[in-house]
């Protein structure tokens, strides 16, 4: 494994550990947020976004270049109807199932095997999206 992928793996392990620590790997906890019974999810997303913002806007600027070379590019997308309509469709799916891509994948590490069918369905949904994009 090259240096880059080792760092991606370590970062991914932290990511998955944090999702499990915060309960996001449990669809019931995500649904309790979406049913406005437990608002904790806001602190997960907010905490992660704040740390990312500090890295992207402060540390990266001091550092100038990624340690392994290349250049820093903040993640920005041009607003379009696809992005908004996609967000609506994602929202319906998230509200029905309590699953999003990262939390569903991490959930496998907790032995939550029913989400395998959810992840398979996500692949099918992404495949259908690809079919329409030709």
């Amino acid at each position: 494994m090259n240096k880059r992928n080792i760092v991606v793996l370590i970062g991914g392990i932290l990511f998955g550990f944090g999702l499990a620590y915060s309960g996001m790997t449990k669809q019931e906890i995500v649904l309790s947020f979406l049913q406005l019974e437990d608002l904790g999810l806001i602190f997960v997303l907010g905490g992660a976004a704040l740390v990312a913002a500090f890295a992207i806007n402060v540390l990266a600027k001091l550092q100038k270049k990624p340690v392994l070379g290349g250049e820093f590019k903040p993640r920005r997308r041009i607003l379009s109807w696809s992005i908004i309509i996609g967000a609506v469709i994602f929202g319906v799916g998230w509200g029905i199932s309590g699953q999003c891509p990262g939390s569903a994948v991490a959930s496998l590490g907790t032995g939550n095997f029913p989400v395998l069918v959810g992840i398979a369905a996500m692949f099918i949904g992404a495949y259908i999206r690809g079919l329409l994009d030709s």
Partner: peptide, 11 residues
Amino acid sequence: GGLLVGFGTRL
């Protein structure tokens, strides 16, 4: 939900 999440997030 998974189907809609897969399709929607990619769109």
